Structures are given as structure tokens and as C-alpha cells.
Computed example of a mutant assay.
Amino acid sequence: MSGTPFETRPSRPTRRSAALLPALLCLALAALTGCTSDPAKASASTDGAAASGSSSADSAHASSKPPAGTAPSKHPAAPARVSIPSIGVSSSLLRLGLNADGTVEVPPADKGMTAGWYTGSTAPGERGAAVIIGHNDTRFGKAVFHDLKKLDKGADIAVLNTLGKSVHFTVTGTDSVSKKAFPTDKVYDKTPNATLRLITCDGSFDAQGHPVNNLIVYARLR
């Protein structure tokens, strides 16, 4: 994918898409605005089953579409809450689907302290890769995944589902990657075992006030 992830609308990707970039809203310290994938074309995100509109300054999308065939056929029980005791995270989970252009939704900026589960990924605890997205910062201030970079290998992540069952994951590693080289397949492809990926913004800001990296946390079922 060429260009910057916030200015270029991608073509329809193949299975080997170069970059599915969760362009999460993060506060630009100088500009005090959120990152957007395309301010002129940004559309509202959804909060669960109900739409929750946000302005173009508060909307951001993944910069390309998920690879075909990554979504499971059904979810036995949707996740309802994520907890990361070592960094003080305890958040209910929004349900994030796809925008009209096929890009992945992110939580609205005014719900920056709430993470979201991408419903095109597997349900946490089921075989495959579950993906949870959260903001680092928004124009409203520090957000739910602000301290995600402090997670150490071996840290515990707990996900509670709608049936009241908790599953625990162990952090196996973290990676800060350029949004221009997002590891789409590594994050979204099916895995033989139950795995979890947490994603937020990271790194320095570019000239437009957009964080240049994504932080990815990889975890496996305990």
C-alpha cells in the first residue's frame, strides 16, 4: 500500500494484503485533534448494535480491508469485558464491525476509555485470533490503552464473555510497527490455537499530528 494510511483509500486487498492498519484515534499533543484515515470521507463508528456518530475529527478507520476468509462463521459467546490487572485496565467492550467502505471501525473518541472487539475476528477463547482495539489518547485525553506499552511478557489478560465465563491469556510479546507496514496476516489470519491481539496507536507524531506506529500485543490462551 502506498501513501500515508490517513490520506489514501486502499484498493480491495487480496489474501496477502500489505497492510490492514487500525488507524486509531490518538491525541496530537500540539494540534489537539484525533487521527483520521480520511477526514473528507470519515463516517460514524458504531457502539454495539446502535450507531454512535462522531465528527470527522473524531473518526478513524483501518486503512484497508481485512483479508478475505479471516472471519469465523459464528461467535459462540461474544466478549463483554477485558481486564489487564498489571496496568489497571478494566473495560467493557464495544462491538466493532466494518464501515461502509469495508474498513474496520474503531471506538468513538468520546468513548476513549472503552475498548472494542472486532466482530470479524474470532471470539476470545475460541480457536483463532481475537482482535481488541482501543485508543491510546483522544482529544478528550488519556484513553483505555494508554499504558499498553508497559505490558511485559507473561502478563495476564482476562476476557469475560456474555455468558459470564472468563478466559485468560498470557502476553507472549509486543511489537511497535509502522502503519505503513502493518503485519496484516500475522494479526488477522486464523491461528491453530486461541490467541489474542490488542492494538492501539504508538510512536511519534507526523507533520499532520498522526501517530506513525501501531502497538500490537500478542497473547495466547493460558
Rank of each mutant, 00 (worst) to 15 (best):
A129Q: 15
R139E: 12
S166Y: 01
N99I: 01
L215E: 07
T119A: 14
G116E: 03
K153Q: 14
V159G: 02
P183T: 05
A50R: 12
H61S: 12
A71G: 07
D152G: 14
N214S: 12
S17W: 02
C201Y: 09
A80R: 15
I133L: 15
C35H: 05
E126W: 01
A57M: 05
L32C: 11
M113L: 11
G116N: 03
M1L: 05
Y188P: 00
G134R: 08
A44N: 14
D206L: 04
M113F: 00
P13E: 03
G3A: 06
N136V: 10
R9S: 02
T46L: 01
S2I: 01
L163P: 00
I199C: 08
V167R: 13
F145P: 07
S92K: 14
V171G: 06
R16I: 01
Q208F: 09
Y118C: 07
I157T: 04
S121D: 00
G134V: 08
K153D: 13
S83L: 08
A130C: 11
S63G: 13
N161H: 03
G97T: 08
P108I: 11
S55Y: 10
T8C: 02
V177T: 14
D38I: 02
F182M: 15
D137A: 15
S45P: 09
P192W: 05
V82G: 02
G154K: 11
A143N: 09
A100H: 12
